[in-house]
Amino acid sequence: GKLSLGEGLEKHPLENRWALWFFKNDRNRAWRDNLHLLTKFDTVEDFWALYSHIQLASKLSSGCDYALFKDGIEPMWEDCRNKHGGRWLVSLAKQQRQSNLDRLWLETLLCLVGEAFEEYSEEVCGAVVNVRTKGDKIAIWTSEAENQPAVTFIGRVFKDRLGLSPKVVIGYQAHADTATKSNSFTKNKFVV
């Protein structure tokens, strides 16, 4: 039969409403002024409609970010849902932009909208992809860095869903440590 998208066909609701943010680096403007809310969605269908109409991460200019966060949480450390939290960080080699970045970012998005972290999904605030010349990064942000059971569960699921080799180690960094670091390295609070 022919697929009908007419009246009476209900969309599949997500557990959360999500907001997609875009950051474009302009050194002449304040960091906050470079951050733009693109749109919000709360169904499977609207997620794909959005995903199908925006640039792939690998096509963004260096210095740009996408951030997908639960509605009501801004993608910055200062937000009350983020400030005691941290992030699982996956750093990619330069050559992985073409081979892996889009697949890994989509997998990250599917983890979020599908609520892949079971009873710990409520701890998830959002995810960020940073497109950078020196190497792209993908991170999942959680709300409480001291919640070890939740953080480590989320990290294990995230690593598994990305299909990373068991030999690869990813680290979780508290935003408080990242914000106060004196050099470019932030200590890992947990690793998986």
Partner: peptide
């Protein structure tokens, strides 16, 4: 009940969108 969707279910909708 929490609304959870596995990756295969979600990806199935991508292909529907791609074919429209």
């Amino acid at each position: 009940e929490k609304k959870r969707y596995d990756r295969e279910f979600l990806l199935g909708f991508q292909f529907i969108f791609a074919s429209l």
